[in-house]
Design a protein around this nucleic acid. Structure first.
Lengths: 121, 121
DNA sequence: AAAATAGTTTGACGAACATCGAACCATCGG
DNA sequence: CCGATGGTTCGATGTTCGTCAAACTATTTT
């Protein structure tokens, strides 16, 4: 089972404490994340590209011009939500500035080799 | 570029010559297969399970009772076609008996670690 | 306080897709 | 030659999903 990571849970060590607002945007416990969910999340060209660009684990802004995709910001927002709910990323919210970060360590632990295999070519 | 593997091309070494009819069901050249296509193919529960069960590279019959999925045979047939066209499997046709086989060596070469990462858990 | 900024949410729309049943095709066994 | 068998294809149906525009929320700037 394992609850969602919410306000009461501690942060993973790679979450910058400057980003205080992670709690409002819950992330599924990695133990509950199913492979099929990850695959579904990543089986979209835009989301796959996003994951590849944050594979190093560094936070990246959500801002539209950071990514340069030819979609509206509501669409981009939808993709970020999909990735979070699927367990792939967390949101680092600081005022108006939102960053996303791949849950790299957890993902590598739960699905060894998967993220790496998405980076080829 | 690279044409589809058709009648004029030679067989990969792991194709049993007993299965003579591979040519009628063309497979994309692995160089043309894009990661996103593989991910899309595998982002379905049934197809993921199929791939996992043939991960060892051994041919398996298409027959409905081999797999035990709760879908009609036309649906199963559709999934096999999807997997072939996405570049994941080849069809080994021998009379009425059809087998499928994961293109394991080619896949491992093109997308190192990907298939392995689907096998966890 | 007002306006601008960064992002979310909602509702609608169309395309893609998983599924089924029925018709069809090819092969094997009497 | 005929029926059974193993599988494919076709058309229809319902659902999922990516997308957009518009409305909304929250934060920062002036």
């Amino acid at each position: 089972m394992a609850e969602e990571t919410a306000a009461t849970n501690e942060h993973p060590s790679d979450v910058d404490p400057e980003h205080w607002n992670v709690e409002n945007y819950p992330v599924p416990d990695m133990a509950d994340v199913q492979l099929i969910d990850v695959l579904r999340a990543v089986a979209d060209p835009i989301r796959l590209e996003i994951v590849r660009r944050i594979a190093d684990g560094k936070p990246q802004p959500k801002s539209r011009d950071t990514w340069g995709f030819d979609v509206q910001k509501s669409t981009l927002s939808h993709h970020f939500k999909t990735l979070r709910e699927a367990g792939l990323i967390r949101w680092l919210v600081n005022g108006r500035q939102h960053d996303i970060q791949l849950r790299r360590a957890e993902l590598d632990d739960r699905f060894p080799g998967l993220i790496d295999s998405l980076l080829a070519d």
